[in-house]
Design a protein around this nucleic acid. Structure first.
Lengths: 156, 156
DNA sequence: ATTGAAATAAGCATAAC
DNA sequence: GTTATGCTTATTTCAAT
């Protein structure tokens, strides 16, 4: 599906504040409220926008520690196999297979360092995991919480 | 600030769908709409909830490639210095300092592999960067888009 | 201090054009 | 795409626990 400049502006506005009213967004981009709603509905049904969520301060919920864990897997472990295994752990907030020495990279959030260790142990207990290599996050510089700037690749 | 069970349920509901009505949330947790609104307002002003955002499919916006870049910095480069430098690049959607050999880890999104290379070049051009080590994401298994399961540490 | 109920104000959804 | 309209939701007020 093709997104024009207005669609991208709408996405940007909703990324910045998902609770903006259609009228507010319309005013910003020069469109009426119903026109904005129709476009939002279209963006939702096309899958460009997959939903709306609250931005939460992890520390407020007790998630004070985060870590990245590289997974080294045996032989030809499939991405699906890894995904299935780590999806069971709620502490894993992101996982992907990658190029390089390691096979996969996990991003985990936990209550404290001890909790991080428990999660790593659980991951390492999987049959396909040969070894892991972890790095604890010291200070977060840029959050993955989306902002307007990340709504579209820059023109360059 | 202390969050009770009702607050956590509200946060969970809003993480799952930021456009739920107060009445819907109230029905789920056994509270009236105004009571829910008051708690949401409190969660917002206390900073537990920092805002509401749209979940966007990156590929729909042209972000088809992602990578993780480890930064090895010279001497005693401060986290603030790294943060300031990478904040200028819109492709950097996450950045943190970490334990281990590398000093920092960046998560970047780009239009294609060529674009990833350009971003790495720009990062490497910073005076404090000694070298970088990158891994291109092959397949994403778990998204960082928050779901209900990630709204609170599990009881254990 | 926090809640629920009622009343008002605001925004939404759907029509029609 | 816009304008007009009934309907839902948000928000305020107030009494009660």
């Amino acid at each position: 599906m093709e997104l024009d400049a207005l669609d991208r502006a709408i996405v940007g506005a909703l990324v910045e504040d998902a609770r903006s009213t259609y009228a507010e967004i319309g005013h910003q981009i020069g469109l009426s409220a119903p026109a904005v709603k129709r476009r939002v509905d279209r963006l939702l049904s096309s899958g460009a926008i997959t939903g709306f969520t609250a931005r939460v301060e992890p520390s407020a919920l007790g998630w004070t520690t985060e870590a990245y864990v590289e997974l080294f897997c045996r032989g030809k472990t499939s991405p699906a196999e890894i995904g299935l295994a780590v999806a069971r752990l709620p502490e894993v907030i992101s996982a992907c297979t990658i190029t390089g020495e390691a096979d996969a990279l996990l991003h985990i959030r936990a209550k404290d360092v001890r909790h991080v260790e428990q999660v790593i142990e659980r991951v390492a207990a999987e049959a396909f995991v040969v070894r892991t290599k972890s790095a604890i996050v010291l200070s977060r510089l840029i959050d993955d919480t989306p902002h307007a700037a990340n709504a579209a690749p820059r023109a360059d």
